Computed example of a mutant assay.
Amino acid sequence: MRLLPGILAMATTVVASNILVQFLFGQWLTWGAFTYPIAFLVTDLTNRLYGPAAARKVVFAGFATGIVCSVIGTQIIGDFGPLVTWRIALGSGLAFLLAQLVDVEVFDRLRSGAWWRAPLASTLIGSALDTAVFFTLAFSASLSFLEPGNDVGWANEALPLLGAGPVVPLWVSLAVADWGVKLALAVIALVPFRLILGRLRAGLA
């Protein structure tokens, strides 16, 4: 029962992000980019309070929730086909699981240092891994064999990076923008991490 709040928070974050990713925010982002990083905050709080084994349980609960969301998404047909392709489902699930489990390990190795070091380092590393795995698996033309019937040509259109840099496939700009948000939120999340941790510890005392 002690992990129930964390499990519910993780499940809510995953469901909300799967819904909000359908809505654009500007040219390079979706609203889901702003909610998904909360998953790292939930994992890190659980890790700090109850240890890595408990944090992994919360991660697996989020992973299971994500699988359900992805399967549902593949069955919903939008204007351009399923809302979630199997490549996106694979990329999303694998990226979440790998990134969160790496986050748990990095946090645990740094937990005895300054209070901010473990959550910041683990989130930065986990976020980078999450972005790289998801966007590569979901959109890279070199992996089109994963789902031959899924046309990812739109994501591989050659455009200037974020509209101003060197010419790269569109999905690279999307990945860089997504990673930038995660980096910023990793720093901002230190504030609620400290505040929530203090309140929870006071409640457990």
Rank of each mutant, 00 (worst) to 15 (best):
L162D: 00
A132K: 07
W171A: 11
L161M: 01
V152F: 04
F139H: 03
P169W: 01
L137Q: 15
W171N: 07
A158T: 07
F134M: 06
N156H: 07
L162Q: 02
S173G: 08
A141T: 10
G165W: 04
F145V: 05
G165I: 00
N156A: 14
A132V: 12
L137I: 09
G163Q: 05
G153P: 12
L174A: 04
A155P: 02
P160V: 05
E147A: 15
N156R: 11
T136Q: 06
A158Y: 13
L137G: 09
N150D: 15
W171S: 00
V133E: 04
V152N: 04
N150S: 14
V176W: 06
A164W: 14
A158S: 15
V176I: 01
A175L: 10
A138N: 09
G149E: 10
V176N: 12
A177V: 05
A177E: 01
P169C: 00
P148N: 11
G165S: 01
V172E: 14
V172K: 09
A158V: 02
V167Y: 05
L137T: 01
F135Y: 14
G153T: 14
V133Y: 05
W171F: 13
L162W: 02
P169K: 00
G153I: 02
A138W: 12
G163M: 04
P166K: 08
L174Q: 02
A132H: 11
G163D: 14
P160E: 10
L162F: 03
P160C: 07
A141H: 15
F139G: 00
S142I: 09
W154S: 13
S142R: 15
L174H: 10
L143S: 01
S142W: 12
V133R: 03
G163E: 09
L161P: 01
L161Q: 04
F145I: 01
F145Q: 09
G165A: 00
P148G: 13
F139Y: 12
L170E: 08
T131K: 14
F139N: 00
D151I: 12
A132G: 15
L162R: 06
F145P: 06
A141F: 11
L174S: 12
G153D: 01
E157K: 05
A175G: 06
G165T: 11
V172P: 08
G153N: 02
N156E: 12
L174T: 11
L159C: 05
L143N: 05
P169G: 00
L162P: 04
L174Y: 13
N150C: 14
S144L: 04
W154M: 10
L146Y: 03
P166D: 13
S173H: 00
P148D: 06
G149Y: 07
V152K: 08
F135C: 07
F134R: 15
P160I: 12
D151C: 13
L146Q: 07
E147H: 07
G165R: 04
D130E: 14
A141R: 15
G165H: 00
L161K: 02
L159M: 15
A141G: 13
E157Y: 01
L174K: 09
S173R: 03
G163W: 08
G163Y: 07
L162N: 02
P148W: 10
G163F: 13
L143E: 13
G149S: 11
N156W: 12
V176M: 10
P160M: 09
A164P: 14
W154D: 13
D130L: 06
S142G: 14
L146E: 08
A138D: 05
G153V: 02
